[in-house]
Nucleic acid binder design. Structure first.
Lengths: 247, 247
DNA sequence: CGATGCATTGATATCGGTCAAAGATGGTGG
DNA sequence: CCACCATCTTTGACCGATATCAATGCATCG
């Protein structure tokens, strides 16, 4: 989707939050031609580490709330973080989950958009927005890494919109598991970590927690996915893939 | 949502572009001071016009299909364009609608992601991607305009996700009308153009065309919105706003 | 070991999907 | 200018799936 020419719509954008602009720039045809795979060098890693504060947070800890002034960006070191908007009705629209090496804390109009909470005990690195901007300006390599990250944001937003468009709860759960598998580990792995609650999953998929529970039980009853306390295991790959592809 | 560090996910992107544009964006005064409203100057307009081809297309014309090699970007001059993905099932997931001055034709891996079609008779301007890139690199003003546009993309994607999360068809239609009003005209106007079909609206809202029709009729029966052939008129502002806000 | 949050299961109601058919609209060509 | 045809819209009947309300079971952590 695309709006009209409305420069003022940007509002006041502190420099750090300019980073939000970049994903779209990258998604544009300008950059369509080619980048090879690349990893952080020790030097780049060190640069980031110097600017960062390491935080150890317990499960359930609120990292920031939507609407608060945004002065830092965060990178997940270990654990899982959930990002959600709280609606007037009290319902929570879950925007997504953040895993190892994911960046979060992008802002709009100088304030955080969503609330983020530690799903598990987590280690996160906090980097002041201005320091982060400064690093990116003088380190093309890091800037590039960052661009890769934010492009992923749009990609996953698209994927989410396709998942939620499905009507059947079972299909949504299957696609959700598939999404998690792709984000957190080996895309061909059969075991998938599920540290979040049914409520959180429901918030992401627009389902009630009861529907999530029933859909999971049905997948188990049909011999497609086994559920362990905080994980899922695909027991029938063929039927699982068929379910996921059935869009 | 944010993915993991997967540089290769971008596909093949010439590093030259990424490294040049990023510092430029970050270094620009835009992100230091906040931005005031700004319009295309005659010179900027001329620059774009020189690079563009003007196309007159009839209603229903397919501008490009998802998967085709992407070599140009487009700007809507007059009329409305729809952007959608065709799923394996034959269903269409409508990503959004493009109006006057909207840019579309963003690509992934060198190919268009969605299919775009003229909802009405349209005038669109086609600009080769490389020419467009060149202009942006040497014209910070235009680059800024472009950034404003693409920021709008994320903003609207978020809004769509909230709309689709609603369960009631009537509420979704109301929010959709509200969205259209904000995009196409005076946000306080009571009359809203509706050039797209019920099927197209349903594709956007994840509803069948019958459900769209019923929801519209219900809004009419309740005296909240009147529907004319290709437009809607809000007859009870208070109740309409309450419906929209009831998220 | 008790308490608290989370998951499961059941009964019922509601809402949108599906199938079907008729009605309105707009565009085209005679 | 009018008639016809294609497309879009409205309306109805029925069904199925999920939300909702309610209660029980289960694990995890002090």
């Amino acid at each position: 989707m695309s709006g009209r020419f409305r420069p003022h719509a940007l509002g006041r954008v502190p420099s750090a939050h300019a980073t939000q602009l970049l994903p779209m720039v990258l998604a544009s045809p300008l950059f369509e031609a080619g980048l090879e795979r690349r990893r952080l060098t020790p030097r780049e890693r060190q640069k980031l580490a110097n600017a960062a504060t390491r935080l150890q947070l317990p499960r359930g800890h609120i990292i920031y709330r939507g609407g608060e002034p945004a002065d830092s960006i965060f990178i997940v070191g270990r654990g899982v973080v959930i990002s959600y908007a709280e609606l007037a009705s009290g319902q929570r629209r879950v925007a997504g989950f953040r895993f190892h090496a994911d960046i979060f804390g992008l802002a709009e109009d100088g304030r955080y958009v969503n609330t983020t909470r530690a799903v598990t005990a987590v280690t996160v690195f906090r980097i002041p927005a201005d320091a982060f901007t400064a690093i990116l300006q003088y380190d093309a390599g890091l800037a590039f890494q960052f661009l890769c990250k934010v492009v992923d944001v749009t990609r996953q937003a698209q994927r989410k919109s396709i998942i939620v468009a499905r009507r059947d709860a079972v299909g949504r759960i299957a696609m959700f598991l598939d999404l998690l598998r792709q984000m957190t580990g080996d895309p061909r792995a059969s075991r998938i970590d599920l540290p979040m609650t049914r409520t959180d999953i429901g918030g992401f998929l627009n389902l009630t927690l009861e529907s999530v529970s029933r859909a999971c039980r049905r997948l188990a009853a049909d011999g497609i996915v086994e559920f362990e306390p905080r994980a899922a295991r695909i027991s029938n790959r063929r039927r699982f893939d068929a379910l996921v592809a059935n869009v």
